[in-house]
C-alpha cells in the first residue's frame, strides 16, 4: 500500500519540479529545480527496481548536468529577461 502511494506521489512531485523549473525567472534557481527533478527521478528509478539507472541518473543528471548548466549560466546571464 505504501509502495503504491509512493508510486503516485513521486511522479506528481517530478511533474511539479519540472513545472517549477520552467516557470522560475531565475535561471540558477531553475537549474536547481532541474537537479531536484533529476534526484526525484533517480529515486523513482530506484523504486522501479533499476538501481543501475538510479546511480547513473544521480551522477549524470543531478550532478554533472547541473554543473554544466550552472557553468553556462555563469558564462552568460543569470536572469531571464522580461519580454
Amino acid at each position: 500500500m505504501i509502495l503504491e502511494a509512493i508510486h503516485i506521489i513521486l511522479p506528481i512531485l517530478i511533474i511539479i519540479s519540472a513545472g517549477i523549473a520552467i516557470l522560475l525567472k531565475d535561471l540558477l534557481a531553475s537549474a536547481v529545480a532541474v537537479a531536484a527533478m533529476s534526484l526525484l527521478l533517480s529515486l523513482e528509478f530506484y523504486i522501479l527496481q533499476a538501481p543501475d539507472v538510479a546511480i547513473a541518473e544521480a551522477g549524470v543528471g543531478a550532478c554533472l548536468t547541473t554543473a554544466i548548466l550552472i557553468l553556462a549560466i555563469k558564462g552568460t546571464k543569470r536572469m531571464e529577461e522580461e519580454v
Binding site: P11, I14, A18, A21, I22, L27, S30, A31, V34, M37, S38, L41, E44, F45, L48, A50, V53, E57, G61, T65, L69, A72, I73, T76, E80, E81, V83
Partner: peptide, 25 residues
C-alpha cells in the same frame, strides 16, 4: 524565449522518455 530555458525544456523531455522506458520494464 530564453535559450537556456529551451535547453532545460529538452532536458525535461529526455527525463520523460527515460522514465517511460524504465516504467515499461
Amino acid at each position: 524565449k530564453n535559450l537556456i530555458k529551451i535547453i532545460i525544456g529538452i532536458t525535461i523531455i529526455q527525463s520523460g522518455v527515460n522514465l517511460f522506458l524504465i516504467t515499461l520494464g
